[in-house]
């Protein structure tokens, strides 16, 4: 118990210190433009990594489509923000509401996936989330949405059917995604989202819900035998994880003037999974560190074109050693158990 609490304070201290330092550097003009541009994506990836860690490290289920929830949040949140351009002039408030909407849609997607999959005993979540990521990408790539004073106008495959009144605008234009987004995401908003995420995840873990969720991860059969309602707790963890990813998606999208569905593909899902594994399964502080380092790194290594991949590899190894090595072991044993079927499960 002691160990966990210190970890929690380290996470908060780290995030607050980093925020303070960056704000000071920005104010004194000592920060490069490229670094400035990376602040919001770093925040988004930190939230993505923490939320995926909730599913993979704390609940112990493999998800291969976390970018799908991010995409869900990005498109719904951004649409909401565009629709509120006039009604909510305050940008901070508009962003906040949009992120809540992104979170709600992310959560709904998580819930819909969870209903069939989380009831099953076995590792179907990986396959279904993988498919979900691809499906959501195809949907947004082929979805056309317009908006005017009469409301929303949906069309699949082409925008021909959409007739907009005067003053209306197209929101989603198929593979072109959403363009002409007013960039209202700020580093401060990202910081607040991270702090909120940390509160939610740590408070969850330290409550009755978190204990039950981790108990299911450690031994599902034993958890059932002491009266834990496995489906309910799995669902809780998975929906919270998806909702946080949705909020992060909104934050991420509103940092660019254009956003397309292809940004949230399988590679992005895997990248986030890599962040979680490197940071250590169940280790939130580790997720924060690895998300920060691995987002900055490719940019920072531009100067060392020749040695880029070498340095990248070394950093990966260092991060791995630095963060929870036992977490990695757990993943390996998990994968082994999965490959070996449910033999262990059958034996009582």
């Amino acid at each position: 118990m002691k160990r966990k609490n210190t970890n929690k304070y380290v996470s908060f201290a780290l995030v607050i210190a980093a925020y303070a330092i960056m704000m000071i550097l920005t104010a004194s003009g000592k920060i490069t433009r490229s670094m400035q541009g990376m602040l919001v994506p770093i925040c988004a990836y930190i939230v993505m990594a923490i939320s995926l860690n909730l599913t993979v490290g704390i609940l112990g289920e493999l998800s291969l489509g976390h970018a799908g929830f991010m995409s869900m949040g990005a498109f719904t949140g951004t649409c909401a923000a565009l629709m509120m351009t006039e009604s909510v002039p305050d940008e901070g408030l508009r962003l906040g509401i949009s992120m809540v909407i992104g979170a709600i849609f992310g959560g709904i997607a998580g819930f819909l996936i969870g209903i069939p999959v989380l009831r099953l005993k076995g590792d179907y979540l990986a396959i279904v989330t993988l498919a979900f990521g691809e499906i959501i990408k195809s949907i947004f790539n082929n979805l056309y949405v317009g908006f005017d004073k009469y409301g929303l106008n949906f069309q699949l495959l082409s925008e021909k059917g959409i007739k907009l009144e005067e003053g209306g605008r197209m929101l989603i234009q198929g593979a072109m995604g959403i363009s002409k987004i007013k960039k209202i995401s700020t580093f401060t908003a990202g910081f607040i989202l991270i702090i909120l995420t940390l509160f939610i995840v740590y408070h969850l873990v330290e409550s009755r819900y978190g204990r039950a969720i981790m108990a299911i991860r450690d031994n599902r059969i034993a958890a059932e035998s002491v009266g834990v309602d496995v489906t309910k707790y799995k669902m809780t963890a998975f929906v919270i994880s998806a909702a946080l990813a949705g909020a992060a998606g909104t934050l991420f999208a509103m940092n660019y003037s254009t956003i397309t569905a292809n940004k949230f593909d399988f590679n992005t899902s895997i990248l986030i999974l890599v962040l979680v594994v490197l940071g250590g399964l169940g280790n939130i502080t580790g997720s924060i560190i690895s998300a920060t380092l691995l987002t900055i790194l490719p940019e920072a290594l531009r100067g060392f074109a020749t040695y880029r991949m070498l340095v990248y590899a070394i950093v990966l190894i260092v991060v791995m050693l630095f963060t929870n090595a036992s977490g990695t072991k757990m993943l390996i044993s998990n994968i082994k158990a999965k490959l070996g079927g449910n033999k262990e499960e059958e034996e009582q």
């Binding site: 118990m1 204990r211 981790m214 108990a215 450690d218 031994n219 059969i221 034993a222 834990v228």
Partner: peptide, 14 residues
């Protein structure tokens, strides 16, 4: 079949 990564107390609280 204990919840190996939880503390003894947490095992019981579950």
């Amino acid at each position: 079949r204990l919840f190996n990564n939880l503390t003894v107390e947490e095992n019981i609280m579950v």
